[in-house]
Design a protein around this nucleic acid. Structure first.
Lengths: 103, 103
DNA sequence: CACACACATAGAAAAATGTCAATATGTTTT
DNA sequence: AAAACATATTGACATTTTTCTATGTGTGTG
């Protein structure tokens, strides 16, 4: 995979805002269009649109256009990438301290 | 577990900054004190200290004080919490669209 | 074709975050 | 006890992010 530091930050920015976390909770019940998401959030329409862009950029959410509606859903593929990335970045290859005279 | 939206953002803020991601990469080779981390990063000492606080607050990194040194390491327990959290928040319970006349 | 609707974009203001220099705190050494 | 060292905290500033209003774009409808 070999994601850059920058790419990793883009993925996890999805989960760095309370409103976006709430959007995940709502989308867990299934795909939903922006107008219905908006009903459940105390946000203006442009603000929601901004958050959906951040979420789609992360790959954790995908949008599907259907006429004038945008349907958003959680991406299992994106989730897998994020999981693999998290696992990789928190994996410890060695545990001994080589620092400050090995104290 | 039942983490709040706020708590989730605190966990994943750890991975929302390129320098912090780089710190994970460095800590993967084992526990390290702040002064040695500083050598490998183009940051001032107070800035590093700030990032280490964010990382410790996330639970993904733990600090261990040894005399005047602070030794930091990746926390496998914290990593597990983050993984479980990511898995939970991206889990989809239903996949059908109940939105906009089920289009 | 004009209008209504769903959503995106632009631009500006406010809030949060990242950064550094200066200083404080706590620990070890001389 | 004083000096040196490692790290944390404070305060200021710059950048980024969040948010809104206003407006634009594309789609369907009367």
């Amino acid at each position: 995979m070999e994601l850059s530091n920058k790419q990793i930050t883009v993925i996890f920015k999805a989960l760095c805002d309370e409103n976006r976390v709430q959007i995940f909770r709502i989308l867990q019940h299934g795909e939903l269009c922006a107008c219905h998401l908006l009903e459940e959030l105390h946000l203006s329409q442009p603000t929601l649109s901004h958050h959906m862009k951040v979420l789609c950029d992360s790959g954790l959410v995908v949008g599907r256009k259907e006429g004038k509606w945008m349907h958003y859903s959680i991406s299992p593929e994106g989730a897998k990438v994020a999981m693999d990335c998290l696992k990789e970045i928190t994996a410890v290859t060695e545990n001994d301290c080589k620092c400050c005279n090995n104290q």
